[in-house]
């Protein structure tokens, strides 16, 4: 796993929320939301799940991971 892309900003703005409001909804600081939107912070599953619920967007749409590992054919 090399990195990830976070589309939180787009969906937050579509929902009409500010960073501050979203941060309060999911129980983190605004700085954490800011770093998340810049894909500089890899959130826990719990936070990712809370964010996904807050902006009504599936978790796999919000976060996209760039995998370098070969995919198994299972």
């Amino acid at each position: 796993m090399d990195g990830f892309i976070c589309h939180l900003k787009r969906y937050r703005q579509a929902k009409g929320l500010t960073q501050e409001q979203l941060a309060e909804m999911v129980g983190v600081r605004r700085e954490t939301i800011m770093r998340l939107e810049k894909s500089l912070y890899n959130p826990s599953l719990k936070l990712a799940f809370d964010l996904s619920k807050a902006v009504d967007t599936p978790i796999e749409v919000l976060f996209q991971f760039e995998s370098t590992e070969p995919e198994s054919g299972l």
């Binding site: 129980g27 983190v28 600081r29 954490t32 770093r35 912070y41 959130p43 826990s44 719990k46 936070l47």
Partner: peptide, 8 residues
């Protein structure tokens, strides 16, 4: 008085 979230 900073919120101790998971990143903190």
């Amino acid at each position: 008085a900073t919120l101790m979230d998971e990143r903190f």
